[in-house]
């Protein structure tokens, strides 16, 4: 089932990668109000990300966008090379973070091109690591279903809702 889910995801990804314009923001003063993140849906539905809101409440673009937006770099690791760089062409998450799960092998194969980008998480992890870290730190909603609704496949996977084990209380919202 997970394999078929994976194929489904890959197929969806190919389709959506073409359809969805990889959010094109070449200048720091131009960005979309919302971003629909739905290239990885399987157990959960997509997320409509309120970009506007996050722009207002975060300290700067670099909190999420590393060095790509041309704003002052926050992460000291990125700053070693990219401290004084202008914006780059690709700023969307999926522009750099791959849909394919990262393994040590895939990391090795990419190392020659991006020498210091060799421990880069895949897209799913990039989203979650980026979002959840702040959400938990600042007490923002951090439950799974606070951001994306779980699908029926997800209910079955987690043995929750209608698939909850007999005799157990239905688990709290995830």
């Amino acid at each position: 089932m997970i394999n078929s889910g994976k194929k489904l995801m890959t197929g969806l990804a190919g389709l959506l990668f073409c359809c969805l314009v990889a959010v094109s923001c070449y200048a720091t003063d131009f960005f979309p109000e919302t971003i629909e993140m739905n290239v990885l849906t399987d157990l959960y539905g997509g997320v409509v990300f309120d970009h506007d809101l996050h722009v207002m409440i975060t300290e700067g673009c670099a909190v999420c966008h590393h060095h790509t937006t041309g704003t002052p770099v926050v992460d000291s690791y990125c700053a070693k090379c990219h401290a004084d760089e202008g914006p780059v062409e690709t700023v969307s998450c999926q522009g750099c973070h791959t849909l394919e799960p990262v393994t040590a092998q895939s990391m090795r194969e990419q190392r020659d091109v991006y020498r210091y980008h060799d421990d880069k998480p895949d897209l799913k992890a990039a989203y979650h690591l980026s979002c959840l870290g702040c959400h938990m730190e600042f007490g923002a909603p951090a439950g799974c279903q606070d951001c994306h609704a779980r699908t029926e496949a997800g209910d079955a996977f987690f043995r929750s809702g209608q698939f909850a084990p007999a005799g157990s209380a239905v688990g709290p919202a995830h």
């Binding site: 997970i2 996977f157 987690f158 929750s160 909850a164 084990p165 157990s168 688990g171």
Partner: peptide
């Protein structure tokens, strides 16, 4: 949850989203 599904393990006592 993934392990339970992959290894076809018996139904758990509690849902996997029960913390």
């Amino acid at each position: 949850a993934a392990c339970n599904k992959e290894q076809k393990l018996p139904e758990p006592d509690k849902s996997f989203d029960d913390f």
